[in-house]
Design a binder for these strands. Structure first.
Lengths: 217, 217, 217, 217
DNA sequence: CATTAAACGAGACGGTACGTCGCGTCTTAGC
DNA sequence: GCTAAGACGCGACGTACCGTCTCGTTTAATG
């Protein structure tokens, strides 16, 4: 995962910034499609830049010109996939919100069940696992991954939990950031490490445990 | 990784199992040492089987004979490291326990703070990140990783939480398995994804949140 | 993608012919030089493609791209050596001729003595033995060897013998091709098999025997 | 061909001569058979000592104990093949003679035609080509090859030619050794180098040319 | 007839080279 | 001047054999 990036990052002579305005949109799409389909078919480690270029009908240099690594290509491809999906789904707003029906437990269960469904969706599983793994090993990529892909989703929880706190449904002393992790991290844990199956029932259990606490009251 | 040829896995004649009784103990140790030191020095992606063999003074085939992949070598090396450390440390029992002072919150904080310290220990960080990432992408390796490295530790929590449940410190309806994940997963989440710093204070906050619950009482 | 292999040579799709116009002349020369010098220094069997590539400062793939085998490299290198030598020597014609002084026996002795000298020249001996041996075992290489290296020389004999026949110095019924082999093969025999020393005296004896015949007249 | 023999011939500590009286005859035969059949099936270069040992059902060490190289194994196997063939054919004498009917030309044609037949016999062709090629490159093996396999046959020609000389069928000044090579070398030349087809007609032509000489009389 | 030392089968070992794949750079045409 | 194509130097891959070195197990001559 995250094979060698630039071995000599110092020697870069003049940054060689290409002219983005002349960039071929057609090639970019083809590269995204090729990258995603290859990761799905042969897995991330066997997906190569040469392979992506060949399938995309693109010169290798076109990839090297615009992306620093295989992982970066995949990350952008994945982001693009999300955007296109969002565009297709919601005509207006480009971002979801966690529903607020007044019933915090129910709202969280709804969202976490949806998260479970997404995580086990075979179409997304391979690339997002690959990306996550690459980010775990490569801090730079990891930061980008978190910033662009993960953090926006987590902020939705922060927002909803803060609202709940104002409504008196969450204790005032609780840090919404910590609370969110109590909810989301267990799902991520099961998904990443495959310790036990990731199900709707588990999502519900996590919500109940987290809201009610382990200690007797 | 792995991926041995034979497009038809049915035709494999006898798996070519080598005779383990004649295995060279000396080579095994040398390979463990070489693998760990290389990962520490140049990082996991730049650690190669060729490099391990060279440093261990061993033929490449001796590695390929006994391990299916670089990750498998590192996993065993890591396990062996743990065993040796345990042997060196504890003269008697070869496994730790979570303390039971009667104060569940304090006990959990003690253990989770120790876990935090271990996770950010620079010596262990590189190889365990690499191993975790490899396990995320490769299910077989992941299963081995969980079974041999992760699950034994988690079972300690199950035991302690069950004791707490009997002592009336944890609500009867709670599944200890879920409870444990509420405690451990947030730390793992921060460590793996580097969303926010992993500190003792965070460990304490997780314990307090998880025990007390998010809802007001 | 890729998917080379296929043990069935029938299925080969297009032979993967590289683009010869973009070939690096510099690499070719370096490979010739490296191959010849290595064969001279360590002998043919210990000359490896890896070694040639290393000495030539060239990637192994560049050799595999243009030649099918070590022997093929050496054959071309040898041919090139001959061409360069010829260019350097003869300003005009690029091919020698067997002299025609009118005295057939003397002319043949001159040429065969020169052949003897060439065969025992230590610089040429190792590579030409190696090449000949390789050609004996590998028919394809052998055919190339004969066509490009041997046959042109033999045709010179055919020409000279035909001239002798017209001049009445050779019996009309004789096939020049057979006659030539009567002269050349004994030298080759001694050289290849090392049955007895290969000397000027032997060359002379062969010419006398072959011209005069064994039977009394 | 003629891959590496002993790289460090100096370091041999005490010659390690094994006890030949305890040698397993069964293994020797099996090794001969395996070597010959493998050379026939896959060719000499792809015949390996490991392969011979495996097919013969023999440990590798048993080969290394008794032979210095693959070529040496094959040479002995070939000699043994010849002996067995001779035993099977001639009940009495273990060596042939060139017939002496009084007609030298006819006798030579008979023998050379038989030689042609033997050389193109597919069963013998692969191993004898391989052996010859190995001997061309490796002088030690070549000497053994000539001494044990080639020279005995050539001596038959010497004997017959000397008899012819005494009978007045060959000029007195002729060296029988040179004469023999005039007859035999052209066949060897065509066989080894595959310049032109090796036929009975060619054998006849060689005899006629050699006896009658090229010059008009 | 039991003892015992060797040759034997098997195959693990440290190595070298194999031929292939993919990397990231560079060059050549073409649009 | 970006692009498709792909040759290049390089390095690692995983495999095949090399020749050496134990391991038990025959096996044949000796005590």
């Amino acid at each position: 995962m995250a094979e060698t990036r630039t071995p000599e990052p110092a020697a870069r002579p003049a940054a060689r910034t290409p002219d983005a305005t002349r960039r071929s949109e057609r090639s970019r799409r083809a590269i995204y499609d090729a990258a995603l389909s290859l990761v799905g078919e042969v897995g991330y480690p066997k997906t190569t830049i040469e392979g992506i270029a060949a399938r995309a009908g693109v010169g290798k240099q076109t990839i090297y010109r615009w992306w620093p690594s295989k992982a970066a290509v995949l990350l952008e491809a994945f982001l693009d996939l999300g955007e296109r999906a969002a565009e297709a789904a919601g005509a207006g707003g480009d971002s979801y919100e966690i529903p607020d029906t007044g019933d915090l437990a129910a709202d969280l269960k709804t969202v976490l069940r949806a998260t479970v469904d997404e995580l086990v969706d075979p179409q997304y599983e391979a690339p997002s696992r690959a990306l996550t793994a690459a980010g775990i090993v490569d801090p730079v990529l990891g930061a980008e991954f978190v910033e662009k892909l993960l953090e926006p989703s987590l902020q939705l929880y922060v927002k909803r939990l803060r609202a709940a706190q104002e409504a008196g449904d969450v204790r005032p002393g609780i840090d919404p950031r910590v609370a969110l992790e109590l909810l989301v991290a267990p799902l991520a844990h099961r998904w990443l490490l495959r310790t036990l199956p990731l199900t709707h029932a588990y999502a519900d259990a996590v919500v109940d445990c987290a809201l009610g606490g382990l200690s007797p009251r």
